[in-house]
Write a protein that binds this DNA or RNA. Structure first.
Length: 462
RNA sequence: GCCGGGGUGACAGAGCGGUAAUGUGAUCGCCUGCAGAGCGAUUUUGUGUCGGUUCAACUCCGACCCCCGGCACCA
């Protein structure tokens, strides 16, 4: 299996540090507002990464941090006249809800910054002891000049960074590129006590405090949005490698491409800020999930409702076909081997897994599913053995992509539907269409859509 | 200025030395009591430009043009 790492800028064979164990960390959101569809893109992509690794037999421990204290939270809370903590709690809950809806369920542990202040302080102290950080008026900064590898992840040279820096001048810092590990308290801000007085953690160190704590000094996968490469991830590398001396801190750096709206970055000021909830008011969660996975995770997506509608059509096509296969038991009554279906399944499986093994290419993997859907639609589904193989494959696909999961079909006995449809069939044969249509309407009210297709009537749960 | 990513049919977007996936859209059929879905066919001179390497280039190399992102808030 090949995985593209930002550090090497190429696809590398995936090999975890220790056997079949994969330790994975993804930068979570800052919880000060509703999560937007850009968050959804990153977290859905990383969800599939974790799911696929698990499917391949790896035991994945997946940690996501939650930034629940920072300037944006403090400012927003002040505007709303509530405590920072209250604001963070509220939006963290909303984040969990949105992720749940999008079927993002692979995270083992969400770690909040404010619950790891002790570790952050310890790390900061250690960095000072080792000479990589210095205290200045109650603030603590990482001294970038002490870490010669600074810039290796983002491919920047230190001199260039300084030259192009738009850093605001902070007289507490020795050098503009130094970054805060600990920020001293300003009037009215939330605080924690520390050896440098009251204050709060800087942003970058919360991730290293959490990851070193739960994943160890060196781990396998670190993911996040492409915008985090610099300075955030660069700073993490600097902190962790200075602290432990172990290189590399992270083996594979995975960065997701940006989600754009009308070719531009989403921003409140541009008025193109789209929240997950906003989209889910009009679209099924699985449509959004499909839309996001119907592109490679490293590619940018230029969001538009036209494309979302397109994804909606495409997803339903697959879903309808797959559900039909899932429900069919196969009758084996005649015809015997269904060669067409069998061969399509084989090539589909091959293409699907080859694509997934190639840096989680979900676009290509999904493209491989369409011929199978067509074969299912054409097939009488009477070859018990092949149908059961198809079903098992769909189940795997569903587990990997988190799509095509059957809804509450368990609560409905197919035999009852079949009995009703049998009566309706008789009515249709007698041309009593008023009653047949009434049955169709009533079933539709119960959430069961039926479709007459030749002699056969197909149904699905809407 | 520095660092990334990219330009493929109407639109979206894979592949990456030899026949250019796939989806959406459009058109026409088939099926059909109606509805829906499906099936079949068709569809656009389709690989940014100019050179080079090669028996063969969308793919490799060079130059150029254009688009997007990052550069100390950010998924």
């Amino acid at each position: 299996m090949l995985v593209y790492s930002t550090l090497s800028r190429e696809k590398e064979e995936f090999k975890p540090i220790k056997g079949k164990i994969v330790k994975m960390f993804v930068c979570g959101p800052t919880v000060y507002d509703y999560p937007h569809i850009g968050h959804a893109k990153t977290y859905v992509a990383m969800d599939v990464v974790a799911r696929y690794l698990r499917f391949k037999g790896y035991s994945v421990f997946y940690v996501q941090n939650i930034t629940d204290i920072d300037d944006k939270i403090i400012n927003r809370a002040r505007e709303m006249n509530i405590k920072a903590e209250e604001l963070a709690d509220r939006f963290l809950r909303i984040y969990y809800e949105d992720m749940e809806k999008l079927n993002v369920k692979s995270v083992n542990l969400f770690a909040r910054a404010t619950q790891h202040v002790e570790e952050i302080i310890e790390q900061t102290e250690m960095l000072i002891e080792k000479g990589f950080a210095y205290e200045s008026n109650g603030n603590v900064y990482f001294d970038v000049s002490k870490f010669s590898d600074f810039g290796k992840l983002s491919g920047q040279k230190k001199e260039e960074l300084i030259a192009g820096a738009r850093v605001e001048v902070d007289e507490n810092k020795k050098s503009p590129e130094d970054f805060a590990l600990w920020k001293s308290m300003k009037e009215g801000e939330p605080f924690w006590n520390s050896p440098w007085g009251r204050g709060r953690p800087g942003w970058h160190i919360e991730d290293t405090a959490i990851s070193l704590n739960y994943l160890g000094e060196s781990y396998d996968v670190h993911g996040g949005g492409i915008d985090l490469i610099f300075p955030h991830h660069e700073a993490e590398v600097a902190i962790a490698e200075s602290l432990t001396g172990k290189k590399p801190f992270v083996r594979y750096w995975l960065h997701t491409g940006f989600l754009l709206v009308n070719g531009e970055k989403m921003a409140k000021s541009l008025g193109n800020f789209l929240t997950i909830r906003g989209i889910l008011e009009k679209y099924e969660p699985m449509t959004l999930r499909f839309f996001l996975l119907y592109a490679h995770y490293r590619s940018p997506i230029d969001f538009s409702y036209e494309l979302l509608n397109e994804a909606d059509e495409a997803y339903k096509r697959l879903d309808t076909s797959f559900r039909r296969a899932q429900r069919s038991e196969g009758t084996d009554k005649e015809g015997g081997e269904d060669r067409e279906l069998k061969e399509t399944l084989l090539s589909c499986k091959h293409r699907f897994f080859e694509a997934m093994d190639d840096d989680f290419n979900t676009r290509e993997a999904i493209a491989a599913l369409f011929p199978l859907a067509k074969a299912i639609n054409v097939s009488p589904l009477s070859d018990v053995e092949t149908v059961s193989e198809v079903r098992s494959f769909i189940k795997d696909v569903s587990e990997i992509l988190g799509l095509f999961e059957s809804k509450e079909e368990k609560n409905i006995k197919p035999e009852i539907i079949d009995a009703i449809l049998d009566i309706r069939k008789m009515l249709r044969e007698e041309k009593r269409y008023d009653l047949a249509d009434r049955i169709r309407a009533k079933l539709s009210e119960c959430g069961i859509e039926i479709e007459d297709s030749g002699k056969e009537t197909r149904w699905k749960i809407s």
